[in-house]
Write a protein that binds this DNA or RNA. Structure first.
Lengths: 325, 325
DNA sequence: CTGAAAGCGCTTACAG
DNA sequence: CTGAAAGCGCTTACAG
C-alpha cells in the first residue's frame, strides 16, 4: 500500500500539503493541488484510516447494540440507522448479544478500543448500561426511554397511543371478547402499550383480559395456546408485537379458527413480515425507518457538538389489513 | 483514555514490557507481570486498536458484501459468518448495496483503507469483482462459484441436487402439472437448480414448464400471476427460493387456490421465515449456518497462512412441511 | 528478561 | 501558501 509520503514525493510537495489537499483543510496553491490530485488518481492512493483514527481519536464509527439481531424489528432498525449514518460518513458495527451478555460486554469494550464515536442502544440490560457508562461514549437509546444521565437522548414511538389504537380498533371491528398479550414489563414499550389498552378498557367499562408474553415467536406460540385454554370464547387477540401475532395466527389455524371470521388479530410494529404473510397482518405501525434515521441523526449531531432534543417521540398509525374486519 | 505509557509508569516498567504482558509475546518476570496486570485492572486500561492496526496492518476485520441485506437469506448468512468470526477474534462489517453499486464500491474502498484482512462476497456483480481485485485483499465467495483467480475459495451448496430433489418430491407428491420458477441465470445457484429440475424432466420424459423469476418477493408475486395465467391447470409450483414461495402462496390464496390441496408448493433455502409462515413451507434446505461458518473459517485460515480447500460444497436436504402432501 | 528507540501513516500547530 | 517537526499509542527488532 502506497503512503502519503510517497504521494508527496511523486508530486514534489510535502506530506502536509497532500493531507491538506485530501481534506480541504487549508488553501493550497492551485498548481500543486492539481499535481497532487493527479498523483492520487494515478497511484490509487487511499489514506490509512488507522493512522487517521489514531491521531483524531475518532473512527467515525457508531456501535449499535441490540438484544437479538434475529428479531426482524431490530434488524430493520439497524438497517435504517446504517443508511443514515452512511450518509453522514459514519460506519456501523452491530453488536448482538443473543442472550450472551458476556459477548455484549466484550463488544462494548471493543467499541471503546476502536475509538467509536457513539453508541445506539436498543437494549434494556442494566449490566450493559453500566458498561456503556464507563466506556465514556455518548449513548442514544432507541425504543425505550432514558434511564441514566449519560444517555444523550431517546427515540421512541407513542406506544401508549398505540396500545389505545389497537384496543379501539378491535372494538370497532366488533370484537366482544378481546384478550391482550401483555408485553414484557421491564421495557417501556411493553408497559406503555399495555397501559393504553388498560385505559381504553376502563373508559369503556370493559373487563381487562390478558396473558403475559415476550416479544418472541416461540413464546407467542405458548401464550396463544394459553389464551385459547383460558379464554375459549376469545374473538379478538391483541398481540404483544407482530412476531407474537405471527405465532398467534399459526396457533389459531391449528385450532381450526378462521382469521378474521372467528378470531380477529392485530399486531404491533409493522415489520416487513407483517405484509408478506398471508393473510396480511393488521397492525399498529411504528415508523421504524424514521426512528432509526432519527437515532443516527441525533447521535451524530451530538457527536459533532450540536444541541439535540432529549425526547423524540414518533406517532403510530393503524395499518388495517386482513386479520381484522 | 489512559495509555500504555501511563500503565508502564504506574507499574514501574517500560511500555514494551506492558505490551509483552498484554499480548503474551515474550517471557516476562513473574513479579513484574503481576504488577502490570494489577495496574491494568485498576486503571481499566484498554489498548487502542487504531495504534495496533497501524503497526500490524491488520484490523482483524472482515468485510461481508451482500447484494441486499433485506433479503433474509443473506441476513442469516451474515449472522452465521459473524458468529464464527467472533469466535476467532475477528469483527465484521457488512456492506449492502441495495442496488446502489456506488455505495458498494465505496464500501470496498473503505475496507481497504481500514486495513481489513479479508472479504466474503455474496454478490455477483462484475464491477464489485473488479474492485475487490485491486483492493488486494483475499476474497472468499459464498453461494456462488469462483470466477477470478484472486478468489481464494468458494462455499456453495449442491444446488443441482437441490433442483432434482424438489422436482422429484413434487412428482412423488402426486403433482401432474408442475411449473418451475427459473431463478436468475446470471448466478450459479439459479442455473444449477434449474439444471437439476431439467434433468429430472428429461429422465422422466416430462415436458418442462417454467417462467423466469428473480429471488425477490415482489417479482415472485408477478411471476406467480404469470404462472396462473399461462398454466391454469398447474397443481405444483417449484419456487425459485423461499421468498418467491412466500409470494406464490399469497397469490394462490388470492385466486382461491388451496395449498396443498389444489396446488402444492416447494421453496428453496429454508430461511427462518419458511417455518414461521402458516402453512409451514416445504423446502429444500441449504445449511445456511454451516455455510456461513465455513466461509469465515476458510477465509480466516487463509489469512493466517493455512492451506484451505478451494471448493466447499454442502449437501442439501428436503424439509417436508405443510405445503406439499 | 528488559528498555530505548524506531516506526506504523497520518494530521496539525508552528514558524516562516 | 508551505514544510519540518512532533505526536497520536501501540509493537518489535535490537542491544544488553
Amino acid at each position: 500500500m502506497i503512503s502519503i509520503r510517497e504521494v508527496a514525493r511523486l508530486a514534489g510537495v510535502s506530506p502536509a500539503t497532500v493531507s491538506r489537499v485530501m481534506n480541504g483543510t487549508a488553501k493550497v496553491d492551485e498548481i500543486k493541488k492539481q499535481k497532487v490530485e493527479k498523483v492520487i488518481l494515478e497511484t490509487g492512493f487511499k489514506p490509512n484510516e488507522a493512522a487517521r483514527t489514531l491521531y483524531k481519536k475518532s473512527a467515525h464509527l457508531i456501535g449499535v447494540i441490540v438484544p437479538n439481531i434475529e428479531n426482524p424489528f431490530f434488524n430493520e432498525m439497524a438497517k435504517a440507522i446504517e443508511n443514515e449514518a452512511y450518509e453522514r460518513g459514519y460506519r456501523l458495527t452491530l453488536c448482538s448479544s443473543n442472550d450472551d451478555i458476556e459477548k455484549e460486554k466484550n463488544s462494548i469494550e471493543l467499541l471503546g478500543r476502536m475509538n467509536a464515536d457513539g453508541i445506539i442502544l436498543l437494549t434494556n440490560e442494566d449490566e450493559i448500561l453500566e458498561k456503556t457508562k464507563d466506556a465514556r461514549i455518548p449513548v442514544v437509546v432507541l425504543d425505550r426511554t432514558v434511564k441514566h444521565k449519560n444517555e444523550v437522548a431517546s427515540i421512541t414511538s407513542d406506544n401508549y397511543e398505540g396500545g389505545r389504537i389497537s384496543m379501539e380498533h378491535m372494538l370497532e371491528s366488533g370484537c366482544k371478547n378481546i384478550v391482550a398479550m401483555r408485553g414484557p414489563q421491564n421495557v417501556s414499550s411493553g408497559r406503555d402499550r399495555f397501559k393504553g389498552y388498560l385505559d381504553v378498557c376502563r373508559e369503556q367499562h370493559i373487563k381487562e383480559q390478558y396473558v403475559d408474553c415476550s416479544y418472541d415467536y416461540e413464546d407467542g406460540l405458548v401464550r396463544t395456546e394459553e389464551i385459547l385454554k383460558t379464554f375459549p370464547e376469545v374473538d379478538g387477540i391483541i398481540a404483544a408485537n407482530d412476531m407474537a401475532a405471527i405465532s398467534a395466527y399459526k396457533v389459531l389455524r391449528r385450532h381450526g379458527k378462521r382469521v378474521p371470521e372467528d378470531v380477529q388479530l392485530i399486531g404491533f410494529d409493522n415489520i416487513i413480515m407483517s405484509r408478506l404473510m398471508t393473510p396480511e397482518l393488521t397492525t399498529v405501525a411504528q415508523p421504524i425507518a424514521e426512528m432509526g434515521a432519527k437515532a443516527a441523526q441525533v447521535l451524530i449531531d451530538h457527536i459533532e457538538g450540536k444541541e439535540v432534543p432529549q425526547k423524540n417521540i414518533f406517532e403510530v398509525e393503524l395499518i388495517h389489513r386482513e386479520t381484522t374486519r
